[in-house]
Simulated scan of single mutants.
Amino acid sequence: MEQWVSAGRHVVATSRGGHTPLDDIAATDPGSVEVEHVDVTDVDQIAALRRRLDGRSFGLLFVNAGVTDEADATVPEISTDEFVRLMVTNALSPLRVIDALEDLVVPGGMIGVMSSGQGSVANNTRGGHEVYRGSKAALNTFVRSYVARRGEDRGPVVLMAPGWVRTGLGGPGARLTIEDSVPGVVATLDSLVDRPGLHYVDYQGRTVPW
């Protein structure tokens, strides 16, 4: 977000609730940043967000939602509740957000979704994080279906693999820092602004195999 603000763009960011660093950024630069609170797994909260944004327009809608499971948990071992939690958060909810907010994106504008390199079926040669992988692969498939029914001439749609980043989700052992990943994510998204169609790419702009 700070990358876009520093480039002079106005950003409406979201968080699940409670005070976050986003609120601190918005407090120091309210003319450039607004923060909305929404749990994207709650359809009523998504609908309420849409109502609050009515009449606005955006050049980019970027949806970032993700939770993970234990690295060694296999599909047969995981509880049904945990399976549902990952699938709803990682695969279903981003499509619900897109469906609710896509009409606010200007013609030819971009829709981006935070995916993962682990969503690649072709690259899955080591296993691990089985349900997380499956949820991101499902997300990729759902977005591909969305583009197929929407039409590729309506602006770019980007599935972004940010790399393995040291966040609450990526963990302390991840290879990249936020400072390593985020500038590349922003630069890659900006490079695809005039390229309609579906793109599955990483933070360095490289195509990720399906």
Rank of each mutant, 00 (worst) to 15 (best):
E2Y: 09
E2T: 14
Q3S: 14
W4C: 11
R9K: 13
V11G: 01
T14E: 06
T20E: 07
T20P: 06
D24C: 08
D24L: 12
I25F: 10
A26T: 04
G31C: 07
V33T: 05
E34M: 10
E34D: 15
E34W: 02
D44A: 14
A47E: 12
R52N: 12
G55D: 04
G55M: 03
S57M: 11
S57T: 15
V63Q: 03
N64S: 15
G66R: 00
T68V: 12
D69M: 04
E70W: 09
A71Y: 10
V75C: 07
E77F: 01
S79V: 00
D81W: 08
R85T: 14
N90H: 00
N90V: 00
P94R: 03
P94F: 02
L95K: 01
D99H: 14
A100Y: 07
G112E: 06
S115V: 02
S115R: 04
Q118W: 11
Q118Y: 12
G119T: 01
G119A: 01
G119N: 04
S120D: 08
V121P: 04
A122Y: 12
N123E: 14
R126F: 13
G128M: 04
V131T: 07
V131H: 00
K136M: 01
V143P: 04
S145C: 15
Y146T: 08
Y146N: 09
G151K: 08
R154F: 10
G155T: 09
P156A: 10
V157F: 01
V157L: 06
V158C: 06
R166H: 06
A174K: 02
I178E: 11
S181G: 04
S181I: 04
V182Y: 09
P183V: 00
G184W: 10
V185P: 09
V186L: 05
V186Q: 03
V186W: 01
D194R: 12
P196M: 06
P196E: 04
V201K: 11
D202I: 06
G205S: 04
T207A: 14
V208N: 10
V208Q: 09
